[in-house]
Structure formats: C-alpha cells, structure tokens
Design a binder for these strands. Structure first.
Lengths: 211, 211
DNA sequence: TAAAATTCGTTATTATCTGATAAAATTAGT
DNA sequence: ACTAATTTTATCAGATAATAACGAATTTTA
C-alpha cells in the first residue's frame, strides 16, 4: 500500500522519462512490461522503477508486470498532463520566438497565448498567430486572462523585475531561462533552465576525462 | 588537505552557480567573502559551500574567508572555462538559430562555428555570420575542423542518426536538446536539455500544491 | 491441474549526501 | 604583543536516496 508522504524531487525528475519510454512502448504496440525489462531499456535498476512507481500507487501486478497503457495514463495524471495550461512568454527575442514556434508543447497541453517585449521593433510581430505585445500591458493582460505559467526569456535584470508582476497576478509557475535566481513565494514554482550552466558541465567533463 | 577522490555530479552541478555568484560579487567590488555570508546570499548552508569547494583544494583561509577573485578564477579553471571550445549546431530550425544568435555563449568561450540542416530552404541562410550548411557535409566538416561539442537541436529520430557521426569524428561533448536518450561511449559526455521534461515538472508542482 | 517461473510490493541494507561540531589558523582590536 | 572574534578545515553524526533481498501473488508451462 502506498503512503502519502512527501515525494522527493529526484523521483519527480524521473517521471517524465518513464512517461516518455512508456509512450514509445505504446507506439510500438507493446502492451505489458516488467520493471526488469524496462530497467534494461532505460539503464536504471528495476528496484528503482518499482520503488518510484510505488510512491504513487500499486500499478503493477505480480507475475505480470505493468500494463503499459494504464501506467502511461497514471503517470500522465500524476504529472498533471491530463489538464492544459496557458503560458505567456516574456521576452520576444530569439529564444522566446523559438519556444513559441516549437509546436510540440501545444500537443502536450501547454499553450502559449501571448508574448511580451519592450522593444518597439518586435511589438506587433506575429509568431504562429500570436502577436508580440508591449510588456507594459503584461499586468493588465494577467488580470483579464487566466495564465498558469510565465516563461522568462529575457536578460537577468529584467527577469527580476518581471517575476513579481507574474507572482502578484496569480501565475503559479515560472519557467526561467534567465541566468538569475528568482526569489518568489513558496506557492509559486520556479523551474530554471540555465543553459550556460549545462554547457559548463560539459566543459568540466571534457577536461576531466583528458586530465 | 584535499583528496583526489571522485567528485559527485551533485557537486559539479552546483559549481556554475557558485561561479555566477562570485562573478556578481566581483562586479560589485567585493574582494572577500566568508562561507557564512555567501550561504545567506545563495540560500544554501555554509557547510555545504565549504565542503564543495574543499573537494578541489583549500581555497579559503581561516579567519579570513575566501578571496573572491582567486576563488572565481579557481572555479573557472575547474569548470574548464579558461579554455575555449568550438561547437557545431545540428538543426537550423528555431532553436538552433536561437542558440546561434545568443551572444553570451561566445563571451564564455563557447564558439559556434557551423550550423547544419538538411532542409534546402535553410541551407545557405546566414546566422550571425555563420552559414547554414547541408548536413551531408557534416562528417567532412568534422574531419577538417576541430570541433569539441555538438549541439543537437533536431527531431529525435534524426538526433539518433547524427550522434554516431559526431562520436566517430572526435566530438567529446554533446549538448542534446532532442527529446531522446542517446547511447554513446563512456568517453563522450552527453548533457540533456529536455525542455518538455522541465515543463512537466512545473505542471506536477502546480497541481500538487492545489490538491 | 499442478509445478515452475515471473514479477511486484515491501523490507532491509548499503551508499551517498547534507548538516553540525571541534580543532586549528588567521585577523583585528587594544 | 596579546587576546578575542572570526572562519576555515577536518571529522562525525544524521538524513536521505539507491540498491539488494525476499515473501506473496500471478502467470505460464507441462
């Protein structure tokens, strides 16, 4: 039986990967899978898979394994992917436009409904049917539209200014591409994507192997 | 005294953040800092800072703390940021172009020297002085140019095809934006940036707080 | 139908990571 | 020069996470 105790971040970070592999299995018409079989595909221990999944419920069956479709749907629910979300991008530069242009987020239920920038040359530009608006209108937009997640794709100083506006107007999640740590209340989630940091990890590893 | 034992990934992941904070201190003209002071700024424990840094050497001084500039330079060296790297981007779509356009990587020594795509409409396009080349030329390019890091910004099936070409031609690091796990030899580093995964973590957290 | 093989859920063990503390070294004030 | 305050280094204890082991339930096979 599973308990309701706190789930660690490490487990949560693994869920999307399980979800992806299960999706691939579904695509290949595989209807059942054992933790052992899955562990070989994913290069993790079977024990970890069983323990991770067991945190959320007893989805498997002894002697059988896991029903792929059932497990896929369960993880989808756990991750909140059975719902859809409205996102606004702040920063209409290269990255902001690239994110808006990438169609796969929409397929998963993450819908970009607006982009904001302060650069007059960008304002009015149309990205995938979404017009870039003046960032001065952001607060008003948040008050009149339901926005779940704010995407910060702008220089760090600006990101620090914009974050409170998002937080104070009901945004519950921030996807932060700016190279700065944001200080927000506990009930707001910040997910950092510090691209420079991950590049640095590569350079560390490259050199470490050589030495 | 510090030992040469294996450094854990958890520590490495924290280094870029230390580096960033030290850079900010330098910019503000702060020349010395204690682990205690830094811990308050970074919202981590002083103990962790000291232990992390101590893995690489004794950079601090009892009664004084750490010399900001010295520590900054040390971490720079540890991360391999005192060298520069040549990168090629495979995938000239929105993301590939956005990465190439973002100037800050170059400042850190990460130089994009080529972009490849198989789409004839993109080939020949000029991004920040770098022409998009036909991906068919990739292998030849790798043989005649020194490339440290390959950036995969293309659909997952294509990424799986391209990865071996990079590996077999001396590329030591792969920055993988494709939503797939790559199978490469141990001496090649893969750093995954699975954007969808991090979005899913936000949706999980948003819902968790509500329930 | 019954025995053998699977495979999960759970408990136990091991490993790792984090936080706290004592000892040593340095600085700063008097 | 001497003392008090500071702060690192090194060590140790506690917490957390990952792996392994095992009993119970189910399926498969003969």
């Amino acid at each position: 039986m599973y308990t309701d105790k706190k789930i660690s971040v490490a487990v949560i970070k693994r869920l999307p990967r399980y979800y992806r592999y299960l999706g691939d299995l579904l695509d290949n018409g595989i209807t059942r899978i054992s933790s052992n079989d899955l562990s070989k595909r994913m290069h993790v221990t079977a024990s970890q898979i069983r323990q991770d999944l067991n945190k959320f419920g007893c989805f498997g069956q002894q002697g059988y394994g896991y029903n792929v479709e059932l497990l896929y749907e369960e993880i989808k629910k756990i991750l909140g992917l059975d719902k859809s979300y409205n996102l606004v991008i702040i920063g209409g530069g290269n990255l902001g436009q690239a994110l808006a242009n990438y169609g796969n987020f929409g397929k998963r239920g993450f819908n970009f409904i607006a982009i904001f920038d302060r650069n007059p040359k960008l304002i009015g530009l149309n990205i995938r049917g979404i017009e870039i608006l003046d960032v001065a209108e952001l607060e008003n937009f948040l008050k009149t539209n339901h926005v779940d997640i704010g995407v910060l794709a702008l220089p760090k100083d600006n990101a620090k200014q914009v974050a409170p506006i998002l937080v104070n107007n009901g945004v519950k999640g921030i996807w932060n591409f700016s190279h700065v740590d944001l200080d927000v209340p506990d009930n707001v989630v910040v997910e950092n994507v510090h691209l420079t940091d991950s590049l640095m990890q590569i350079s560390y590893a490259i050199n470490g192997d050589i030495e």
